[in-house]
Simulated assay, not measured.
Amino acid sequence: MSSLSGKEAVASQRTSFEALYDVWTKAFSGMEKLTELNLRAVKSTLAENQAISGAVLSTNNPLELLALQAKRAQATMEEAHSYWRHVRNIMFSTQAELAASAETRFRQRQHDAQAFVDTVAINAPAGSEAVVNALQSVVMAANEAAGATIEASMKAAQQALEIAEDNVHVGPSASNTATRQS
Rank of each mutant, 00 (worst) to 15 (best):
K33M: 08
A80T: 11
S128G: 05
E129V: 09
Q136C: 06
A115N: 09
A80G: 10
A47I: 03
E162F: 14
T179Y: 03
M77F: 04
G6P: 13
V117F: 02
M31K: 12
A156Y: 02
G30Q: 00
A67S: 15
A47P: 03
T59L: 02
L65Y: 14
Q95H: 01
N38S: 11
L37N: 03
M1I: 09
A152I: 01
A146W: 10
H81D: 08
E162V: 12
R105S: 14
M140S: 13
L63Q: 09
A160E: 06
E103G: 06
R88S: 15
T149F: 01
A75C: 04
A164Q: 04
A102M: 12
A142I: 07
E129W: 04
T149R: 09
D112V: 03
F116K: 12
D118H: 14
Q181E: 12
V87Y: 02
Y21Q: 10
F106N: 09
H111L: 13
M1A: 07
T177Q: 01
K43H: 08
P62C: 00
S128I: 02
S2T: 14
A113I: 10
I90L: 01
G6R: 15
W24M: 12
S175L: 15
E165Q: 04
V139R: 04
L65V: 06
R109V: 14
D22E: 12
P125D: 01
L135H: 00
A152W: 00
V56L: 15
L65M: 11
M77R: 11
K26P: 01
F106Y: 11
H81F: 01
S93W: 13
P62R: 00
T35C: 14
K71P: 05
R109T: 09
E151I: 09
S3R: 13
R72Y: 14
A47L: 02
G6T: 15
G54E: 14
S44I: 03
N133K: 12
S5D: 13
V56G: 08
Q114F: 08
E144W: 04
N61V: 09
P172L: 04
E129T: 02
A47W: 00
A148S: 03
Q114G: 01
H169A: 15
